[in-house]
Write a protein that binds this DNA or RNA. Structure first.
Lengths: 219, 219, 219, 219
DNA sequence: GATGAATGAGTGTTCATTCAT
DNA sequence: TATGAATGAACACTCATTCAT
């Protein structure tokens, strides 16, 4: 009844090993082009075993997303709540964190993959929309709202304000995994600099106009 | 023995007809999901004939990209040269033009296709880089430089300034052909509003700060 | 545009060849246990070719039924219309015809197969019900009704009358392809004798009681 | 070291529990469609344990058939000996009893199973032939002979007379577990009415013709 | 004995590509 | 040139069976 120690340890490890192998391959070759057996082999198990843990290839993909992306949000959410500095600094901080925890990581390949294959796997697309896009957008919205509420930003139409932040991030990731991957190394974008420039510009674009010239300026 | 005039004309047209059909289908369904026979049928020929003109489906893809990436640029270049209004207006104008002449067009599907398939077709990626990305970036750079030169924008690091404009455009196109195509109609982005918001923000971000009210300017 | 003679002849022949091979194998091994490739191989083509002519294995099965069973009904229907003898004779004749044209034929294996696999292929079951059982029942009903109308049979509840004829037929076929196929040859049923006995009994069971003692017998 | 009483009892019961579970499932879903694990689960053991007691699924099937084919016959045999009414009534009675004790029971699924799988398990087929078909036929033969002996039936060729009774029964059971299970509920046969009609007809078919009305019998 | 994790052969279906005509 | 019949490799998923624990 009680599983044996060795077996149990293996059984617990299997899903993560499979998810890790799947992440590698999905990012490297795309969802459709990755064969289930290849994932299994890379994880050191047989094809059958893969389906012991994941009901389908799509299920496996969902696990990859959950384990590599969705899981990032709670941490960010907490950090956001506890942040005490200016919203401008917060945005800078978040972008740096996003880059180091996600953009600069294999996981960002998933975002690009979704862009590529959404049309052919609508089920995955809507899963990703719910699991990643919406929470992510909500997080950005909270940052922007914080800026507005604290008088740092002027009022923002949130339907589109979110994209002011999101678009440069997604572009970077998409570029990195497509054209950027085909170009000679020095040709392209240096992500850190790219992001700094984008945020600086965005922040100026969102900032509340400087208060009317201070005291004494009027007669 | 001499080919019938009509037949001859047809024969010459074949490749273009096939490429046109392929463009439609690749944009509509993606590369992998488009079946060779479907392309042939839409072009009014048999499956065998397709392979008479293109050695493989990949070859056809390359032809599609090459034949459809072309000169929107000269027109824009001229317009840009002749423009007399403010650079802010110019940027608004260019974005509208870009959307109606490209973004809202089948051609934008090509950009998305390139993003999706770049890894599988590296030669195409660099071809696209040279033929599209670089001229396009140059155009944007000219606009920004114009703003700087006329004192409308503050100085800009052009290596990244370009992306401030480019990223929102590419994101829009990518989104439209991927997640945007899978979502219920009203859920998503309204491109015109999206673009207006982005440009307004960018412009504020790029704008030269209003001259500090000169001291003693008040009565 | 015009298919070449040899090719055309082949193309026309393919479906029948495949159906013939499928009949053999379905009867021999059952529907589920017959592999599509085996059918193709026996028909002398590749697996791919099979699916060129039949969209699925179930489709192939339907073709087998249509070509080997449904096609028998029109002939019977005509014979039935034109028959001038007594209904008892007609029933004898039909049974003999049924046996020689169907029961004693590989096609009868299909009926047994349906009995075996109906539960697992409900789609096939209802197809067979419509395509075979119902027309067959209608034919039997017509015979019985003829007997009633001509005063040869006493009135019959047709909901169950049909089964009086059908049950012995189906039993024979089922038995032949199951237990009967496993028994030493002489042990079993001799179909012709079996059928004769059944019909004789049934006919007595259905017959109108002999007319009241002929006229004049009474005072 | 000495096995716990309960455990021991359990161990002994295991095979029967497995066979019982298998009976349910084989009858419900057929042999091929029943998964070994499902049988094990229903019996409350693990998949591995199943194969501890039965070398293969086929072996399990054989055990199911063998364990469930058994003695309804002695009871009937006695009833038959003691019956004092007319043979027509006896036949009616036996049919009702057969339906309620067998046809309407899981056990009838076994007969259908045998029909379906006989070709794949010829030993089972002959086992079934000896254990079930032959004793059953003998019983029917006794009933018919009784009718003949008492002058209720006209002389019968027993080689085929038996089937006049048997065929409708087997057809009913086969139908019930195949097509009948796939049809909308009201479409099909109502067993009780079906049986009544069959027997009535059969009895008329077997009955000794009423003595010709003796001449001059009328006043 | 009992478990349940692991296996891997097996199969319907698709589709780019070939080639005889 | 053009056709379209034919091919066969590819692939996700299932499940009876094994075996280390």
């Amino acid at each position: 009844m009680v599983p044996h120690a060795k077996t149990a340890r293996r059984k617990q490890a299997r899903p993560s090993e499979l998810v890790a192998a799947a992440l590698d391959l999905f990012v490297e070759k795309g969802f459709a082009a990755t064969r289930a057996e290849e994932v299994a082999t890379r994880a050191g198990v047989s094809k059958g075993t893969l389906f012991l843990y994941f009901a389908s290839k799509e299920d496996l993909f969902k696990a990859v997303v959950r384990e590599n992306i969705s899981g990032l949000y709670p941490e960010w959410s907490v950090e956001l709540d506890n942040y005490t500095g200016s919203t401008a600094e917060l945005l800078h901080y978040c972008m740096q964190a996003w880059w180091s925890r996600f953009g600069d990581t294999k996981a960002s390949g998933i975002s690009k993959l979704i862009m590529s294959e959404a049309r052919n796997f609508p089920e995955l697309a809507s899963f990703y929309q719910q699991e990643v896009v919406e929470p992510g957008s909500a997080l950005i919205r909270r940052i922007l709202q914080r800026g507005v509420d604290r008088g740092e930003f002027h009022p923002i139409d949130m339907r589109y304000g979110v994209y002011v932040v999101l678009a440069p991030m997604m572009f970077l990731v998409t570029w990195k995994h497509s054209l950027g991957a085909c170009l000679p190394a020095q040709t392209g974008i240096v992500p850190q600099e790219y992001l700094r420039f984008q945020i600086d510009t965005i922040l100026r674009g969102l900032a509340r106009p400087a208060a009317a010239p201070p005291k004494g300026s009027a007669p």
